[in-house]
C-alpha cells in the first residue's frame, strides 16, 4: 500500500488536538518538537503541516488545556514551549475515550458489511 503522509484534512475532526495533547503528556515541547515527534512516532505517516499545527496550539492555549512560555531551546535559541495543564489532562481523557468509541464504531460498520 502506498503510505503517503496524510495531511490534517485526512484526520478526523479535532484529532490533531488529541494527538498534540497526548504528546505533551510526556514533556513540555515546542511546536517543531511536536511535529517531529508525531512524524517519528507514526513512522512518517502523520506529517502535520505547520499551517495547521500552530493554530491548533493556539486553540489549546485559548481553551486552557495547555500553557505556553518562552524558554531557551536545546540549540540556544528562544523557543515557545507548551505544557499540558490539569484541565488539559482531563480533556485529553474524555477525548481519548470518545476517540476509542468512535474508532470502535467505525470498525464495527466496516466489518459488518
Amino acid at each position: 500500500m502506498d503510505r503517503a503522509p496524510i495531511s490534517q484534512s485526512g484526520l478526523l475532526p479535532r484529532t490533531l488536538d488529541l494527538l498534540v495533547l497526548k504528546t505533551l503528556t510526556r514533556a513540555p515541547l515546542h511546536g517543531y518538537g511536536i511535529a517531529q515527534y508525531l512524524l517519528r512516532t507514526t513512522s512518517s505517516f502523520l506529517s502535520v503541516g505547520e499551517g495547521t499545527l500552530y493554530p491548533a496550539l493556539q486553540r489549546l492555549v485559548v481553551n486552557g488545556w495547555a500553557q505556553a512560555e518562552w524558554r531557551q531551546s536545546e540549540t540556544g535559541r528562544r523557543a515557545r514551549y507548551y505544557t499540558i495543564t490539569p484541565v488539559g489532562r482531563k480533556h485529553l481523557r474524555t477525548q481519548e475515550r470518545e476517540f476509542e468509541q468512535m474508532v470502535d464504531a467505525i470498525r464495527l460498520v466496516l466489518r459488518a458489511v
Binding site: 515546542h30 511546536g31 517543531y32 511535529a35 505547520e50 500552530y54 493556539q58 505556553a68 531551546s73 535559541r77 528562544r78 523557543a79 515557545r80
Partner: peptide, 10 residues
Amino acid sequence: ASFDEEVAFH
C-alpha cells in the same frame, strides 16, 4: 507577534 517568532524558529 509571538506566532511570527515561533514560525521563524520552526
